[in-house]
Design a binder for these strands. Structure first.
Lengths: 257, 257
DNA sequence: CGTAAATTTGATGGTTTTCAAGCCATGTGG
DNA sequence: CCACATGGCTTGAAAACCATCAAATTTACG
Protein backbone atom coordinates (compact mmCIF):
# COMPACT_ATOMS: atom_id res chain seq x y z
CA UNK A 1 0.00 0.00 0.00
CA UNK A 2 2.55 2.52 -1.13
CA UNK A 3 1.63 6.15 -1.11
CA UNK A 4 2.39 7.69 -4.40
CA UNK A 5 2.20 11.43 -4.85
CA UNK A 6 -0.34 10.73 -7.51
CA UNK A 7 -2.60 8.94 -5.11
CA UNK A 8 -4.33 12.22 -4.52
CA UNK A 9 -5.88 13.98 -7.40
CA UNK A 10 -6.52 17.57 -6.51
CA UNK A 11 -8.88 19.60 -8.60
CA UNK A 12 -8.92 23.35 -8.41
CA UNK A 13 -11.77 25.69 -8.91
CA UNK A 14 -13.08 24.08 -12.03
CA UNK A 15 -16.55 23.57 -10.67
CA UNK A 16 -19.49 25.83 -11.24
CA UNK A 17 -20.38 28.12 -8.35
CA UNK A 18 -23.31 25.98 -7.28
CA UNK A 19 -21.01 23.04 -6.68
CA UNK A 20 -22.18 22.48 -3.14
CA UNK A 21 -25.78 22.53 -4.26
CA UNK A 22 -25.11 19.62 -6.57
CA UNK A 23 -22.94 17.69 -4.13
CA UNK A 24 -23.90 14.04 -3.77
CA UNK A 25 -23.55 14.38 -0.02
CA UNK A 26 -26.49 16.77 -0.21
CA UNK A 27 -28.46 17.32 2.95
CA UNK A 28 -26.01 15.29 5.01
CA UNK A 29 -23.30 17.94 4.69
CA UNK A 30 -22.61 20.69 7.16
CA UNK A 31 -24.12 23.21 4.78
CA UNK A 32 -27.51 21.57 4.80
CA UNK A 33 -29.22 24.41 6.61
CA UNK A 34 -27.36 27.23 4.93
CA UNK A 35 -29.05 29.80 2.75
CA UNK A 36 -28.17 29.66 -0.94
CA UNK A 37 -25.93 32.69 -0.51
CA UNK A 38 -24.13 31.13 2.44
CA UNK A 39 -23.72 28.00 0.45
CA UNK A 40 -22.01 29.73 -2.37
CA UNK A 41 -19.73 31.52 0.09
CA UNK A 42 -18.93 28.17 1.68
CA UNK A 43 -18.32 26.64 -1.68
CA UNK A 44 -15.91 29.42 -2.55
CA UNK A 45 -13.99 28.73 0.61
CA UNK A 46 -13.21 25.18 -0.25
CA UNK A 47 -12.76 24.74 -3.94
CA UNK A 48 -10.52 21.76 -3.59
CA UNK A 49 -11.82 18.31 -4.20
CA UNK A 50 -9.62 15.35 -3.65
CA UNK A 51 -10.27 12.08 -5.41
CA UNK A 52 -9.19 8.77 -3.91
CA UNK A 53 -9.77 6.61 -6.95
CA UNK A 54 -9.31 3.23 -5.29
CA UNK A 55 -9.65 1.49 -1.96
CA UNK A 56 -6.47 1.83 0.05
CA UNK A 57 -5.50 5.27 -1.23
CA UNK A 58 -4.31 7.54 1.52
CA UNK A 59 -5.93 10.86 2.39
CA UNK A 60 -3.45 11.77 5.11
CA UNK A 61 -1.00 10.05 7.43
CA UNK A 62 -0.70 10.12 11.20
CA UNK A 63 1.90 12.65 12.25
CA UNK A 64 1.42 14.90 9.25
CA UNK A 65 0.67 18.55 10.01
CA UNK A 66 -3.07 18.78 10.45
CA UNK A 67 -3.94 21.65 8.15
CA UNK A 68 -7.45 20.78 7.08
CA UNK A 69 -10.69 18.90 7.59
CA UNK A 70 -12.33 16.87 4.90
CA UNK A 71 -16.01 16.38 4.10
CA UNK A 72 -16.78 13.16 2.31
CA UNK A 73 -18.62 13.73 -0.96
CA UNK A 74 -18.90 10.10 -1.94
CA UNK A 75 -17.49 6.72 -0.98
CA UNK A 76 -16.13 5.61 2.37
CA UNK A 77 -13.07 6.67 4.36
CA UNK A 78 -11.61 5.00 7.44
CA UNK A 79 -9.30 6.49 10.05
CA UNK A 80 -6.93 4.22 11.93
CA UNK A 81 -3.72 3.99 13.87
CA UNK A 82 -0.92 1.48 13.41
CA UNK A 83 1.21 0.28 16.28
CA UNK A 84 4.79 -0.86 15.99
CA UNK A 85 3.70 -4.43 15.37
CA UNK A 86 1.64 -3.37 12.42
CA UNK A 87 -1.75 -3.86 14.03
CA UNK A 88 -4.40 -1.55 12.69
CA UNK A 89 -6.97 -0.04 14.99
CA UNK A 90 -9.83 1.46 13.05
CA UNK A 91 -11.17 4.57 14.76
CA UNK A 92 -14.06 5.37 12.48
CA UNK A 93 -15.78 4.97 9.13
CA UNK A 94 -16.95 8.05 7.28
CA UNK A 95 -19.59 8.26 4.56
CA UNK A 96 -21.02 11.00 2.36
CA UNK A 97 -21.56 14.11 4.45
CA UNK A 98 -19.33 12.98 7.31
CA UNK A 99 -16.39 15.09 8.43
CA UNK A 100 -12.97 13.45 8.61
CA UNK A 101 -10.34 14.93 10.88
CA UNK A 102 -12.40 16.45 13.68
CA UNK A 103 -10.08 14.78 16.17
CA UNK A 104 -7.26 16.83 14.69
CA UNK A 105 -8.97 20.21 15.02
CA UNK A 106 -7.13 21.02 18.19
CA UNK A 107 -3.97 19.18 17.31
CA UNK A 108 -0.96 20.21 15.26
CA UNK A 109 -0.69 16.76 13.70
CA UNK A 110 -3.21 14.19 12.55
CA UNK A 111 -3.50 11.55 15.27
CA UNK A 112 -4.42 8.80 12.81
CA UNK A 113 -4.17 7.72 9.21
CA UNK A 114 -7.07 8.22 6.81
CA UNK A 115 -7.51 5.83 3.89
CA UNK A 116 -10.17 5.16 1.33
CA UNK A 117 -12.25 2.05 1.99
CA UNK A 118 -13.84 2.36 -1.41
CA UNK A 119 -13.19 4.83 -4.18
CA UNK A 120 -14.03 8.17 -2.62
CA UNK A 121 -14.08 11.88 -3.11
CA UNK A 122 -13.72 14.56 -0.44
CA UNK A 123 -13.85 18.33 -0.02
CA UNK A 124 -10.79 19.82 1.60
CA UNK A 125 -11.42 22.60 4.10
CA UNK A 126 -8.36 24.39 5.40
CA UNK A 127 -8.45 25.11 9.10
CA UNK A 128 -7.95 28.82 8.65
CA UNK A 129 -10.81 29.06 6.20
CA UNK A 130 -12.99 27.05 8.50
CA UNK A 131 -12.46 29.40 11.38
CA UNK A 132 -13.33 32.30 9.17
CA UNK A 133 -16.45 30.60 7.88
CA UNK A 134 -17.60 29.68 11.37
CA UNK A 135 -17.59 33.33 12.34
CA UNK A 136 -19.52 34.34 9.23
CA UNK A 137 -22.15 31.59 9.24
CA UNK A 138 -23.71 30.97 12.66
CA UNK A 139 -25.60 27.87 11.61
CA UNK A 140 -22.38 26.29 10.51
CA UNK A 141 -20.86 26.50 13.97
CA UNK A 142 -23.96 24.96 15.43
CA UNK A 143 -23.74 22.07 13.01
CA UNK A 144 -20.06 21.52 13.53
CA UNK A 145 -20.48 21.40 17.29
CA UNK A 146 -23.32 18.94 16.87
CA UNK A 147 -21.15 16.72 14.72
CA UNK A 148 -18.29 16.72 17.15
CA UNK A 149 -20.61 16.12 20.04
CA UNK A 150 -22.21 13.22 18.22
CA UNK A 151 -18.86 11.68 17.36
CA UNK A 152 -17.78 12.03 20.95
CA UNK A 153 -20.97 10.37 22.13
CA UNK A 154 -20.47 7.56 19.68
CA UNK A 155 -16.84 7.00 20.58
CA UNK A 156 -17.69 6.95 24.26
CA UNK A 157 -20.57 4.56 23.71
CA UNK A 158 -18.44 2.09 21.80
CA UNK A 159 -15.58 2.28 24.27
CA UNK A 160 -17.49 0.34 26.92
CA UNK A 161 -16.79 -3.31 27.69
CA UNK A 162 -19.27 -5.37 25.77
CA UNK A 163 -19.40 -8.86 24.40
CA UNK A 164 -18.59 -9.61 20.80
CA UNK A 165 -22.28 -10.20 20.08
CA UNK A 166 -23.25 -6.83 21.52
CA UNK A 167 -20.56 -5.01 19.58
CA UNK A 168 -21.36 -6.57 16.24
CA UNK A 169 -25.09 -6.06 16.71
CA UNK A 170 -24.57 -2.42 17.65
CA UNK A 171 -22.32 -1.94 14.65
CA UNK A 172 -24.89 -3.39 12.28
CA UNK A 173 -27.72 -1.28 13.71
CA UNK A 174 -25.60 1.83 13.50
CA UNK A 175 -24.47 1.17 9.96
CA UNK A 176 -28.04 0.48 8.97
CA UNK A 177 -29.04 3.86 10.34
CA UNK A 178 -26.26 5.72 8.59
CA UNK A 179 -26.52 3.87 5.31
CA UNK A 180 -30.30 3.77 5.18
CA UNK A 181 -30.27 5.76 1.94
CA UNK A 182 -27.83 3.38 0.27
CA UNK A 183 -30.01 0.35 -0.05
CA UNK A 184 -33.13 0.18 -2.12
CA UNK A 185 -34.37 -2.98 -0.46
CA UNK A 186 -35.56 -2.60 3.10
CA UNK A 187 -33.46 -4.97 5.17
CA UNK A 188 -30.43 -4.82 2.95
CA UNK A 189 -27.16 -3.45 4.28
CA UNK A 190 -24.15 -2.93 2.05
CA UNK A 191 -20.97 -2.84 4.06
CA UNK A 192 -18.09 -1.41 2.05
CA UNK A 193 -15.36 -2.49 4.48
CA UNK A 194 -13.72 -5.86 5.01
CA UNK A 195 -14.35 -8.13 7.99
CA UNK A 196 -10.90 -7.27 9.11
CA UNK A 197 -11.72 -3.57 9.18
CA UNK A 198 -14.88 -4.28 11.12
CA UNK A 199 -12.93 -6.42 13.56
CA UNK A 200 -10.23 -3.79 14.00
CA UNK A 201 -12.93 -1.24 14.61
CA UNK A 202 -14.79 -3.32 17.17
CA UNK A 203 -11.62 -4.57 18.88
CA UNK A 204 -12.25 -8.15 17.89
CA UNK A 205 -10.40 -10.72 15.84
CA UNK A 206 -11.50 -11.15 12.26
CA UNK A 207 -12.52 -14.70 13.03
CA UNK A 208 -14.69 -13.58 15.89
CA UNK A 209 -16.65 -11.26 13.63
CA UNK A 210 -17.19 -14.12 11.21
CA UNK A 211 -18.33 -16.41 13.98
CA UNK A 212 -20.73 -13.86 15.41
CA UNK A 213 -22.24 -13.26 12.01
CA UNK A 214 -22.55 -17.00 11.52
CA UNK A 215 -24.26 -17.25 14.90
CA UNK A 216 -26.67 -14.46 14.01
CA UNK A 217 -27.36 -16.16 10.73
CA UNK A 218 -28.12 -19.52 12.27
CA UNK A 219 -30.41 -17.71 14.72
CA UNK A 220 -32.30 -16.43 11.73
CA UNK A 221 -31.53 -12.79 12.43
CA UNK A 222 -29.82 -12.09 9.14
CA UNK A 223 -28.39 -13.52 5.93
CA UNK A 224 -24.70 -12.87 5.73
CA UNK A 225 -23.45 -12.37 2.24
CA UNK A 226 -19.93 -11.24 1.60
CA UNK A 227 -20.43 -7.50 1.54
CA UNK A 228 -24.21 -7.41 1.52
CA UNK A 229 -26.14 -8.41 4.60
CA UNK A 230 -29.86 -8.86 4.78
CA UNK A 231 -31.27 -8.04 8.19
CA UNK A 232 -34.21 -10.30 8.97
CA UNK A 233 -34.85 -9.61 12.64
CA UNK A 234 -33.76 -6.13 13.41
CA UNK A 235 -35.53 -6.14 16.75
CA UNK A 236 -33.42 -9.01 18.01
CA UNK A 237 -30.28 -7.22 16.91
CA UNK A 238 -31.40 -4.05 18.60
CA UNK A 239 -32.01 -5.98 21.77
CA UNK A 240 -28.50 -7.41 21.65
CA UNK A 241 -27.06 -3.98 20.96
CA UNK A 242 -29.02 -2.13 23.60
CA UNK A 243 -26.38 -1.95 26.34
CA UNK A 244 -23.99 -0.21 23.99
CA UNK A 245 -26.36 2.72 23.86
CA UNK A 246 -25.97 3.81 20.25
CA UNK A 247 -29.62 3.01 19.68
CA UNK A 248 -32.17 5.69 20.59
CA UNK A 249 -32.09 6.82 24.20
CA UNK A 250 -34.06 4.98 26.81
CA UNK A 251 -35.19 6.98 29.81
CA UNK A 252 -37.12 5.79 32.83
CA UNK A 253 -34.25 5.15 35.15
CA UNK A 254 -34.75 6.18 38.70
CA UNK A 255 -31.74 6.49 40.88
CA UNK A 256 -31.28 7.80 44.35
CA UNK A 257 -28.21 9.59 45.49
CA UNK B 1 -15.63 22.90 53.03
CA UNK B 2 -19.17 23.82 53.98
CA UNK B 3 -21.56 20.92 54.35
CA UNK B 4 -24.96 21.76 53.00
CA UNK B 5 -28.12 19.77 53.69
CA UNK B 6 -29.05 20.17 50.03
CA UNK B 7 -27.53 18.18 47.25
CA UNK B 8 -27.16 21.18 45.04
CA UNK B 9 -26.49 24.65 46.24
CA UNK B 10 -27.05 27.22 43.56
CA UNK B 11 -25.59 30.60 44.14
CA UNK B 12 -26.73 33.58 42.17
CA UNK B 13 -24.74 36.58 41.24
CA UNK B 14 -23.37 37.19 44.66
CA UNK B 15 -19.76 37.10 43.54
CA UNK B 16 -17.66 40.10 42.74
CA UNK B 17 -17.24 40.82 39.04
CA UNK B 18 -13.76 39.37 38.96
CA UNK B 19 -15.07 35.97 39.97
CA UNK B 20 -13.50 34.18 37.06
CA UNK B 21 -10.19 35.82 37.76
CA UNK B 22 -10.14 34.29 41.19
CA UNK B 23 -11.44 30.89 40.14
CA UNK B 24 -9.40 27.98 41.47
CA UNK B 25 -9.51 26.41 38.03
CA UNK B 26 -7.48 29.38 36.87
CA UNK B 27 -5.49 28.94 33.69
CA UNK B 28 -7.03 25.55 33.02
CA UNK B 29 -10.42 27.08 32.23
CA UNK B 30 -11.69 27.98 28.79
CA UNK B 31 -11.21 31.64 29.59
CA UNK B 32 -7.48 31.30 30.12
CA UNK B 33 -6.55 33.31 27.05
CA UNK B 34 -9.32 35.88 27.31
CA UNK B 35 -8.68 39.54 27.92
CA UNK B 36 -9.79 40.89 31.31
CA UNK B 37 -12.80 42.52 29.64
CA UNK B 38 -13.79 39.29 27.91
CA UNK B 39 -13.37 37.50 31.16
CA UNK B 40 -15.80 39.74 32.94
CA UNK B 41 -18.28 39.35 30.08
CA UNK B 42 -17.88 35.60 30.33
CA UNK B 43 -18.29 35.72 34.06
CA UNK B 44 -21.48 37.70 33.66
CA UNK B 45 -22.84 35.05 31.32
CA UNK B 46 -22.56 32.26 33.83
CA UNK B 47 -23.23 33.52 37.29
CA UNK B 48 -24.43 30.21 38.60
CA UNK B 49 -22.21 28.02 40.67
CA UNK B 50 -23.37 24.65 41.75
CA UNK B 51 -21.91 22.93 44.76
CA UNK B 52 -21.83 19.15 45.08
CA UNK B 53 -20.88 18.95 48.74
CA UNK B 54 -20.16 15.23 48.92
CA UNK B 55 -19.03 12.34 46.78
CA UNK B 56 -21.97 10.71 45.05
CA UNK B 57 -24.06 13.86 44.62
CA UNK B 58 -25.65 14.12 41.22
CA UNK B 59 -25.03 16.96 38.79
CA UNK B 60 -27.41 15.66 36.14
CA UNK B 61 -29.00 12.40 35.07
CA UNK B 62 -28.99 10.60 31.74
CA UNK B 63 -32.12 11.43 29.79
CA UNK B 64 -32.63 14.84 31.35
CA UNK B 65 -32.95 17.75 28.92
CA UNK B 66 -29.42 18.87 28.17
CA UNK B 67 -29.65 22.60 28.78
CA UNK B 68 -26.15 23.45 29.89
CA UNK B 69 -22.47 22.63 30.09
CA UNK B 70 -20.52 22.72 33.31
CA UNK B 71 -16.96 23.80 33.98
CA UNK B 72 -15.40 22.21 37.03
CA UNK B 73 -14.11 24.78 39.51
CA UNK B 74 -12.84 22.32 42.08
CA UNK B 75 -13.08 18.64 42.91
CA UNK B 76 -13.75 15.73 40.58
CA UNK B 77 -16.81 14.72 38.54
CA UNK B 78 -17.43 11.46 36.71
CA UNK B 79 -19.84 10.77 33.88
CA UNK B 80 -21.23 7.28 33.45
CA UNK B 81 -24.04 5.18 32.07
CA UNK B 82 -25.98 2.46 33.85
CA UNK B 83 -27.41 -0.54 32.05
CA UNK B 84 -30.48 -2.45 33.12
CA UNK B 85 -28.38 -4.81 35.22
CA UNK B 86 -26.98 -1.89 37.19
CA UNK B 87 -23.50 -2.01 35.73
CA UNK B 88 -21.81 1.36 35.65
CA UNK B 89 -19.61 2.34 32.75
CA UNK B 90 -17.54 5.37 33.55
CA UNK B 91 -17.06 7.56 30.50
CA UNK B 92 -14.77 10.16 31.94
CA UNK B 93 -13.31 11.92 34.95
CA UNK B 94 -13.29 15.71 35.05
CA UNK B 95 -11.09 17.96 37.16
CA UNK B 96 -10.73 21.71 37.70
CA UNK B 97 -10.97 23.46 34.35
CA UNK B 98 -12.50 20.51 32.53
CA UNK B 99 -15.83 20.83 30.74
CA UNK B 100 -18.57 18.34 31.61
CA UNK B 101 -21.32 17.71 29.10
CA UNK B 102 -19.60 18.28 25.77
CA UNK B 103 -21.06 15.04 24.52
CA UNK B 104 -24.50 16.58 25.07
CA UNK B 105 -23.87 19.74 23.07
CA UNK B 106 -25.60 18.36 20.02
CA UNK B 107 -28.11 16.26 21.89
CA UNK B 108 -31.44 17.15 23.43
CA UNK B 109 -30.81 14.92 26.44
CA UNK B 110 -27.73 14.12 28.47
CA UNK B 111 -26.41 10.75 27.30
CA UNK B 112 -24.92 9.89 30.69
CA UNK B 113 -25.15 10.62 34.40
CA UNK B 114 -22.76 13.04 36.08
CA UNK B 115 -21.88 12.54 39.73
CA UNK B 116 -19.38 14.00 42.12
CA UNK B 117 -16.39 11.76 42.86
CA UNK B 118 -15.26 14.10 45.60
CA UNK B 119 -16.86 17.26 46.93
CA UNK B 120 -16.94 19.53 43.92
CA UNK B 121 -18.05 22.86 42.58
CA UNK B 122 -18.97 23.72 38.99
CA UNK B 123 -19.95 26.70 36.85
CA UNK B 124 -23.17 26.23 34.93
CA UNK B 125 -23.18 27.57 31.38
CA UNK B 126 -26.52 27.52 29.61
CA UNK B 127 -26.30 26.41 26.00
CA UNK B 128 -27.93 29.55 24.67
CA UNK B 129 -25.50 31.76 26.53
CA UNK B 130 -22.62 29.70 25.31
CA UNK B 131 -23.59 30.14 21.69
CA UNK B 132 -23.85 33.87 22.23
CA UNK B 133 -20.47 33.99 23.92
CA UNK B 134 -18.81 31.95 21.19
CA UNK B 135 -19.85 34.52 18.62
CA UNK B 136 -18.58 37.38 20.73
CA UNK B 137 -15.25 35.91 21.80
CA UNK B 138 -13.31 34.28 18.97
CA UNK B 139 -10.65 32.79 21.21
CA UNK B 140 -13.32 31.00 23.17
CA UNK B 141 -14.57 29.11 20.15
CA UNK B 142 -11.04 28.09 19.34
CA UNK B 143 -10.57 26.74 22.85
CA UNK B 144 -13.85 24.91 22.92
CA UNK B 145 -13.12 23.20 19.62
CA UNK B 146 -9.71 22.23 20.93
CA UNK B 147 -11.26 20.73 24.03
CA UNK B 148 -13.78 18.71 22.11
CA UNK B 149 -11.16 17.59 19.67
CA UNK B 150 -8.91 16.52 22.53
CA UNK B 151 -11.67 14.62 24.26
CA UNK B 152 -12.52 12.89 21.03
CA UNK B 153 -8.90 11.94 20.53
CA UNK B 154 -8.72 10.62 24.06
CA UNK B 155 -11.90 8.61 23.81
CA UNK B 156 -10.76 7.11 20.52
CA UNK B 157 -7.34 6.29 21.94
CA UNK B 158 -8.78 4.47 24.92
CA UNK B 159 -11.30 2.57 22.85
CA UNK B 160 -8.66 0.34 21.31
CA UNK B 161 -8.14 -3.24 22.45
CA UNK B 162 -5.31 -3.26 24.90
CA UNK B 163 -4.23 -5.47 27.75
CA UNK B 164 -5.12 -4.69 31.32
CA UNK B 165 -1.51 -3.67 31.99
CA UNK B 166 -1.49 -1.24 29.10
CA UNK B 167 -4.79 0.31 30.12
CA UNK B 168 -3.87 0.82 33.73
CA UNK B 169 -0.45 2.19 32.86
CA UNK B 170 -1.97 4.61 30.36
CA UNK B 171 -4.52 5.68 32.92
CA UNK B 172 -1.86 6.38 35.52
CA UNK B 173 0.31 8.35 33.11
CA UNK B 174 -2.67 10.37 31.96
CA UNK B 175 -3.86 11.11 35.46
CA UNK B 176 -0.36 12.11 36.46
CA UNK B 177 -0.30 14.60 33.60
CA UNK B 178 -3.66 16.08 34.43
CA UNK B 179 -3.16 16.14 38.17
CA UNK B 180 0.44 17.28 38.12
CA UNK B 181 -0.48 20.44 40.01
CA UNK B 182 -2.23 18.50 42.76
CA UNK B 183 0.74 16.81 44.34
CA UNK B 184 3.57 18.59 46.06
CA UNK B 185 5.84 15.56 46.01
CA UNK B 186 7.16 14.63 42.60
CA UNK B 187 6.10 11.05 42.02
CA UNK B 188 2.97 11.23 44.09
CA UNK B 189 -0.41 10.74 42.46
CA UNK B 190 -3.64 11.25 44.39
CA UNK B 191 -6.50 9.41 42.76
CA UNK B 192 -9.84 10.64 44.06
CA UNK B 193 -11.88 7.76 42.62
CA UNK B 194 -12.35 4.20 43.84
CA UNK B 195 -10.80 1.12 42.24
CA UNK B 196 -14.24 0.27 41.07
CA UNK B 197 -14.57 3.56 39.21
CA UNK B 198 -11.18 3.06 37.61
CA UNK B 199 -12.16 -0.45 36.58
CA UNK B 200 -15.48 0.68 35.15
CA UNK B 201 -13.64 3.35 33.24
CA UNK B 202 -11.00 1.02 31.81
CA UNK B 203 -13.45 -1.80 31.07
CA UNK B 204 -11.88 -4.12 33.60
CA UNK B 205 -13.04 -5.90 36.71
CA UNK B 206 -12.19 -4.25 40.00
CA UNK B 207 -10.08 -7.24 40.88
CA UNK B 208 -8.08 -6.93 37.70
CA UNK B 209 -7.15 -3.36 38.51
CA UNK B 210 -5.99 -4.50 41.95
CA UNK B 211 -3.94 -7.29 40.49
CA UNK B 212 -2.31 -5.06 37.89
CA UNK B 213 -1.39 -2.52 40.54
CA UNK B 214 -0.01 -5.31 42.69
CA UNK B 215 2.03 -6.52 39.72
CA UNK B 216 3.37 -3.04 39.06
CA UNK B 217 4.22 -2.72 42.72
CA UNK B 218 6.14 -5.97 42.87
CA UNK B 219 7.97 -4.88 39.73
CA UNK B 220 9.09 -1.83 41.66
CA UNK B 221 7.32 0.61 39.38
CA UNK B 222 5.16 2.18 42.06
CA UNK B 223 3.96 2.00 45.65
CA UNK B 224 0.22 1.47 45.73
CA UNK B 225 -1.44 3.11 48.68
CA UNK B 226 -5.17 3.26 49.00
CA UNK B 227 -5.85 6.53 47.23
CA UNK B 228 -2.29 7.79 46.96
CA UNK B 229 0.15 6.15 44.58
CA UNK B 230 3.82 6.85 44.39
CA UNK B 231 5.23 6.41 40.90
CA UNK B 232 8.78 5.11 41.11
CA UNK B 233 9.54 4.19 37.51
CA UNK B 234 7.50 6.38 35.27
CA UNK B 235 9.50 5.40 32.21
CA UNK B 236 8.49 1.77 32.59
CA UNK B 237 4.86 2.77 32.91
CA UNK B 238 5.10 4.97 29.87
CA UNK B 239 6.58 2.10 27.93
CA UNK B 240 3.69 -0.12 28.94
CA UNK B 241 1.20 2.58 28.03
CA UNK B 242 2.73 3.49 24.73
CA UNK B 243 0.45 1.53 22.38
CA UNK B 244 -2.58 3.30 23.78
CA UNK B 245 -1.23 6.56 22.45
CA UNK B 246 -2.36 8.98 25.14
CA UNK B 247 1.19 9.73 26.11
CA UNK B 248 2.89 12.64 24.35
CA UNK B 249 3.02 12.18 20.60
CA UNK B 250 5.79 9.92 19.47
CA UNK B 251 5.95 10.54 15.74
CA UNK B 252 8.44 13.17 14.74
CA UNK B 253 6.23 16.15 14.21
CA UNK B 254 6.89 19.15 12.18
CA UNK B 255 4.50 21.81 13.22
CA UNK B 256 3.17 23.84 10.38
CA UNK B 257 0.17 26.02 9.76
C1' DC C 1 -7.08 -17.60 -15.82
C1' DG C 2 -4.02 -17.47 -11.93
C1' DT C 3 -2.34 -15.34 -7.96
C1' DA C 4 -3.24 -12.94 -3.85
C1' DA C 5 -6.38 -11.56 -0.59
C1' DA C 6 -10.52 -12.27 2.00
C1' DT C 7 -13.70 -15.30 4.30
C1' DT C 8 -14.88 -19.18 6.92
C1' DT C 9 -14.50 -23.22 10.12
C1' DG C 10 -11.99 -25.95 13.68
C1' DA C 11 -8.88 -26.79 17.72
C1' DT C 12 -6.17 -24.90 21.34
C1' DG C 13 -4.52 -21.74 24.72
C1' DG C 14 -4.29 -17.42 27.39
C1' DT C 15 -6.07 -13.29 29.59
C1' DT C 16 -9.64 -11.70 32.10
C1' DT C 17 -13.91 -12.38 34.49
C1' DT C 18 -16.50 -14.40 37.95
C1' DC C 19 -17.25 -16.30 42.37
C1' DA C 20 -15.71 -16.56 47.06
C1' DA C 21 -13.58 -15.11 51.17
C1' DG C 22 -10.54 -12.29 54.21
C1' DC C 23 -8.63 -7.88 55.43
C1' DC C 24 -8.61 -3.03 56.29
C1' DA C 25 -10.34 1.57 56.93
C1' DT C 26 -13.98 4.59 58.21
C1' DG C 27 -17.79 6.04 60.76
C1' DT C 28 -21.69 5.36 63.93
C1' DG C 29 -24.05 4.44 68.05
C1' DG C 30 -24.23 2.53 72.52
C1' DC D 1 -13.98 4.16 74.27
C1' DC D 2 -15.20 0.19 72.10
C1' DA D 3 -18.16 -2.79 69.25
C1' DC D 4 -20.05 -3.22 65.19
C1' DA D 5 -21.46 -2.42 60.48
C1' DT D 6 -20.35 -0.83 56.03
C1' DG D 7 -17.87 -0.29 52.02
C1' DG D 8 -13.60 -0.52 49.75
C1' DC D 9 -9.49 -3.17 48.88
C1' DT D 10 -6.97 -7.46 48.17
C1' DT D 11 -5.94 -12.28 47.13
C1' DG D 12 -7.10 -17.08 45.49
C1' DA D 13 -9.24 -20.74 42.40
C1' DA D 14 -12.27 -22.02 38.52
C1' DA D 15 -14.66 -20.83 34.31
C1' DA D 16 -15.79 -18.12 30.22
C1' DC D 17 -14.80 -15.71 26.38
C1' DC D 18 -12.04 -14.42 22.89
C1' DA D 19 -7.46 -14.59 20.46
C1' DT D 20 -4.28 -17.27 18.19
C1' DC D 21 -2.78 -20.72 15.13
C1' DA D 22 -3.84 -23.60 11.21
C1' DA D 23 -6.00 -24.83 7.00
C1' DA D 24 -9.77 -25.11 3.48
C1' DT D 25 -12.60 -22.47 0.52
C1' DT D 26 -14.15 -18.53 -1.85
C1' DT D 27 -13.71 -14.09 -3.92
C1' DA D 28 -11.40 -10.29 -6.13
C1' DC D 29 -8.68 -8.46 -9.68
C1' DG D 30 -4.83 -7.81 -12.93
Amino acid sequence: MTVSPHALKVMHAAQPRHGCTLCPAGAACLTADATPAERIAWHDLQREWIALPRAGKRLYAAGEPATALFVVRAGCIKTFTVDEEGNERVRGFFYAGDVVGLDALGSAAYPAYANAVTAAQVCRIAKGQLQHALGATPGLLQRLLERMSMELRLALAFSGNYTADQRVAAFLILMKQRLAADSAIDGELKLPMTRRDIANHLRLATETVCRVLARFESAGWLDAGDRILRLRNREALRLQAEPVGVTPVRHSLRLAS
